[in-house]
Design a protein around this nucleic acid. Structure first.
Length: 565
DNA sequence: CATTGAGGAA
DNA sequence: ATAGCTCCTCAATG
């Protein structure tokens, strides 16, 4: 009870962090290690300590004692009775159950517990029936190897995550080396073959897990290179799953440019081509495709077409449910998950944890900024008022309609125009959600618009002009969420977005992170209608980025008629 | 045989 | 809770 800490720890596992406190920044960094930011108000940020956040911390080597010591140090009025015990109880569950290869029968795995009573308790739990668990000793159960994934998934759900020591298949050997004359990077403290220090660290820590884990790296940090380095380390045939076909192409190019693999060794398993080769690239959509709703998956068999020694899940936060199911069946294959934001909007973080693996490396976005690998971003929330007639329509609308009206507030166009004028000469991306709104904006700003139905050729032409600098302002729809090849800009203006998607916000900020000439600074503006339902969703959207240390300066947009000044 | 567009899934 | 986008497949076109 030192009375000066930045936080207040509460019995319900939440921690309030005072924004104005001198220790705010340091405390936020520390909390991010074992808690999750769930709410951010101007005065306080609310973190929640969850079982999953503790287990991920435990996977990274943190102990209950360290976490409690950290909390004690941060908490202004000490830790409430019971909280300490609860943290200890939850975090020590990680490791109470372990999974091992069965010495005599390879069709079985062994589940070991540190106490007989734990197994007694688990035996009665629903969800575990059907997994053919058989008690084989006071501290041991056997389980068919094929149920390994389901068992881990279910036990995690029940609150008892399993440390998996059952081992991995080597997979078919594939020899590859780095290309000595690989692409030169922009400079900086590069290690051998262009691997940056943090990339090497990520590879090392993944390797240390034995064969399953998730690496969390910001946009622009070179996740693909980490993937390549893991393949190079393991020297085995690899299946790479990505979120779209552009990523497939990018992986292919990087493989060709940076490793000794030849075109004939790299296969694309997509709508266009059905190649299954030592290194095969496929999209999630390919795997989850069904001819019609009730029918089965046509291409799931790709998981078994070769003796893969490694599966890479790119953008693992997007992994669809059927791929989780298939992944449960191949737990003996090594798995690497890659993502910039481990948060999912569907609450299946637990399945990523149990089926792909625990977080094994995370680099906070801002630390990459400090090292100069990405641009420093200034975030501004611009509060745009409603014109009187919009306000009156808003007042009589239903709550769903209210959000739509506020998001589509026409006054945002003038605000956007003023931002663009203030950044004259800079490349600006205007990003929004609704096509009608974007059409109006594009007309008002005299800038081209790219939407889902813009043909690829036209997009490429616009991207090229924007890249060259002959085109300064580009208006884009939700394509910005998926287009991997969208050019970099130094200013982004977000005019509307999906309800509360933290993913989307992070993705959009990622659009301006590429290092800049000179000051290495970029600007992210988000336009939010004042006194409207849009504001609460805006706050939720930015939770992940707030967690990463980005702060939004709130400013009033002023009224449209002042635009001329 | 390649390209284009419609329709369905997620 | 949306509206929007992408990808897959299949059929029609030249």
């Amino acid at each position: 009870m030192n009375g000066s800490g930045a936080c207040i720890a509460r019995k319900d596992m939440t921690v309030l962090l005072e924004c104005g406190h001198p220790g705010f920044e340091a405390a936020g960094k520390e909390l991010a290690d074992y808690a999750e930011l769930v709410k951010s108000l101007p005065a306080y940020h609310t973190y929640r300590i969850t079982p999953l956040s503790l287990w991920n911390a435990a996977a990274g080597g943190r102990t209950a004692e360290q976490i409690i010591a950290s909390l004690r140090n941060l908490a202004r009025w000490g830790i409430p009775a019971g909280l300490e015990e609860e943290i200890g109880r939850l975090i020590t569950r990680y490791g109470r159950l372990t999974l091992h290869a069965h010495a005599a029968d390879s069709r079985l795995v062994l589940l070991r517990a540190d106490s007989a009573s734990l197994l007694d308790e688990l035996e009665g739990r629903s969800g575990l029936d059907g997994l053919h668990l058989k008690r084989s000793g006071a501290l041991e159960c056997t389980c068919p190897a094929g149920c390994r994934g389901l068992l881990k998934q279910e036990l995690t759900r029940l609150g008892y995550p399993v440390l998996d020591y059952a081992g991995y298949r080597e997979g078919q050997e594939l020899s590859l080396t780095w290309k000595q004359d690989g692409p030169k990077s922009a400079g900086g403290n590069e290690a051998a073959f262009g691997l940056r220090a943090y990339q090497e660290e990520a590879v090392r820590l993944f390797y240390g897990t034995g064969g399953s884990g998730v690496v969390v790296l910001p946009c622009g940090a070179g996740k693909t290179v980490v993937g390549l380095a893991v393949i190079e380390k393991l020297q085995c045939e690899t299946l790479i799953l990505t979120s779209n076909t552009t990523s497939v192409e990018q992986w292919r190019e990087e493989l060709l440019q940076r490793t000794s693999l030849t075109g004939g060794e790299i296969g694309e398993y997509t709508g266009e081509r059905r190649e299954v080769r030592p290194v095969t690239l496929a999209t999630y959509q390919m795997l989850t495709h069904r001819r019609s709703k009730g029918e089965g998956f046509v291409h799931m068999n790709l998981f078994n077409e070769r003796n893969w020694g490694l599966i890479i899940y790119d953008e693992v936060h997007l992994l669809p449910a059927p791929v989780f199911r298939a992944t449960a069946d191949i737990q003996a294959t090594r798995r690497l998950g890659l993502t910039a934001t481990l948060v999912r909007e569907d609450g299946r973080e637990g399945d990523v944890f149990s089926l792909i693996g625990p977080r094994c490396y995370e680099l906070p976005w801002r630390s990459l900024e400090q090292q100069g690998w990405i641009a420093a971003v200034e975030c501004v929330e611009l509060v745009v008022p409603m014109e009187p007639d919009l306000r009156s329509r808003y007042l009589y609308a239903g709550s769903k309609e209210q959000f739509r009206l506020a998001a589509g507030n026409p006054s945002k166009a003038a605000a956007a125009a003023r931002i663009i004028a203030a950044h004259a000469g800079s490349k600006v991306l205007v990003i929004g959600q609704y096509l009608d709104q974007l059409n109006e904006l594009a007309a008002r700003l005299n800038a081209p618009l790219i939407t889902g139905k813009t043909p690829q050729r036209e997009r490429n032409a616009l991207y090229a002009a924007f890249n060259e600098g002959t085109l300064k302002v580009l208006v884009v729809s939700k394509v910005a969420n998926f287009a991997v090849n969208l050019p970099d800009a130094s200013v982004a203006i977000e005019v509307s977005g999906a309800y509360g998607s933290r993913q989307e916000e992070a993705q959009r900020l990622g659009r301006i992170l590429r290092p800049k000439q000179g000051e290495n600074r970029a600007y992210f503006y988000t336009l939010v209608t004042g006194d409207s339902r849009e504001q609460e969703f805006a706050l939720r959207r930015r939770l992940f980025l707030t967690e990463q240390g980005y702060e939004y300066a709130v400013k009033a947009a002023g009224r449209p008629e002042e635009a001329t000044s």
